[in-house]
Design a protein around this nucleic acid. Sequence first.
DNA 1: GTGAAAGCGCTAACAC
DNA 2: GTGTTAGCGCTTTCAC
Lengths: 349, 349
Amino acid sequence: MGRKTVTIRDVARHAGVGISTVSYVLNGDEQHVSATTREQILAAVRELKYRPNAIARSMVKRKTGTVGLIISELSNALFVPITDGVEQVLSTEGYHIVLARAESAEAETNAIELLRSQQVDGIIFMSLSVRRPADPLSLLEAEEVPFVVINRDLNPGQFCQIMLDDRGAGRQATEHLISLGYDSIGTITGIRETRPGYEPRRSAVERHAGWEHALTRRGLLIQDAWIVPGWYTYQGGYEAIHELARRSALPRALMIANDMMAIGALRALAELQIRVPHDLAIATIGDPPYAAYTVPPLTTLALPIEEAGRLAARILIEWIQGKPPESKGPIVLPFDLKVRESCGARKLE
Amino acid sequence: MGRKTVTIRDVARHAGVGISTVSYVLNGDEQHVSATTREQILAAVRELKYRPNAIARSMVKRKTGTVGLIISELSNALFVPITDGVEQVLSTEGYHIVLARAESAEAETNAIELLRSQQVDGIIFMSLSVRRPADPLSLLEAEEVPFVVINRDLNPGQFCQIMLDDRGAGRQATEHLISLGYDSIGTITGIRETRPGYEPRRSAVERHAGWEHALTRRGLLIQDAWIVPGWYTYQGGYEAIHELARRSALPRALMIANDMMAIGALRALAELQIRVPHDLAIATIGDPPYAAYTVPPLTTLALPIEEAGRLAARILIEWIQGKPPESKGPIVLPFDLKVRESCGARKLE
DNA sequence: GTGAAAGCGCTAACAC
DNA sequence: GTGTTAGCGCTTTCAC
């Protein structure tokens, strides 16, 4: 890049000093160099428009100042906030993100190889909450590569991982509905089972378990007819409502396992002239920016996903700089309840 | 990374050959090496789990195989599709993306410096359509760094840039409404003027001009009371509707300059019991995945933004590999009309 | 066909 | 304080 690269050598010559002196100045070695020499060198740097070659530096320091970010799919709603969070702390610490997408397990192994040959200092895995072979991660661990995993279906404690409290979210959403006085609460579930094109998600299973748990704890009925799969998609949520309406009398409220399905559901409900929250109250999980602008606005549990990104980045940097995380217990982040209108306000008391 | 790195040297020793022979094999130099030697080397590679050091290679080849992607803000809706498109072609060509966020002009200059010192082979700029000083870009050009700019307010023909046909989009959206028989058409505009926290956007100005153009061409009235700013935000769209309702009799249709404002507008309209499209038809610009699931689903012009990303990446790679773009005329990408329900179907004929 | 050697631009001992 | 030098891991002439 650029016609003829100016090197540290040129600077040294131009300033009439040795090459290492320039290096000292460039690396901010305060005590080593006299003020006058430093000035001369800085002047030469400016004059020649010298730009240090980070690659050459990496070569000798055996650190690149880059971190790989492996993402299962860019179009996932979690991608932006995660990346945002990661970028926030990484950039302030002077690290760069090298992006890699890995939609399948093989692609992931591949991505890891590629990033490692790029000599990244560490890796952050941001997954959908699907299960994938742990072997590539074990390998990384064996070779002492710093890495942290966000939101993957793994054995707890196995690696340094950050989890979201999906079960708690399902429970909280449901309990919020219960606390408002609803006593018949159905659910639209995410991808809990295999189906062509869909890998089951830990989050879906967990959120569902949370729903179940909340109901049993309060002694409320768990009615099979009120459990409808929505496959975590807009269309799935839309169809789930129609299916539900076909099946039986509607419950009074619905815990919908993610926001996309909730959006789809809202449209179906409008078509069926079922009023929300009057006829059917809704609570969901996931808080995209537009959740406050649906009709009606969605009561939901916001995922602490940006925070997860920041946390992952912080842990990773410390690790890279020599402080591996002490405990491997998974860090579980709580969700945050946003009460809006879709749940209704009809408190019992 | 990894305890003791195995180098090409180790492989050579292990295979009992010279270091350069290994290099040949690794770089797929077919004719240079005999089949038997090749096999020996490959065996050694496998046995030692050798992983080439891309950094060292970059050092001598003076190419890193990385491309910088400078983004003004991650939370912008364009970020995901752009990055997706860019990543698609870059990864198949063996390039890596180094991500950089640059919210301000200074941050951008800074990001450029950082990426260059990381020796990226080229840079893609993905901006909101704001105006920013062109100096840093001129500098890049002067130093013959390959780069392409997507969606920025720049002089056409100045750099290699990909533009979206925002004026055409505004016009098309409006014309579609006209073709359906609506003869009074208002608009909610984006950020056309400076306001604390908002930089004016070329896209907003252009889309508005498109609206105006469509109306004048058909001899329809341009009524000031029907022009309301919505600042490109959900809340802005929401407030714009309330403002509009306050001002005067409503127009029969509305061209809303982006999808976020349309979502906000939809909610305000629901509150005011104004039925869409029956009382007020809506067409907008921007087609997020949920646009088909609002109530009613939005008629909109989809931005060809993923394609823009792909295109940018393709052009950049060619440039990096020695073929700079011949014409600097900006490449203007057309939008794609998606007819859904918010515009109504009341054709005149 | 294959190997030896000269760097790519930089840092970090180690001399002076 | 400052300069000399030996690599970091690799590619690439250029001999053999």
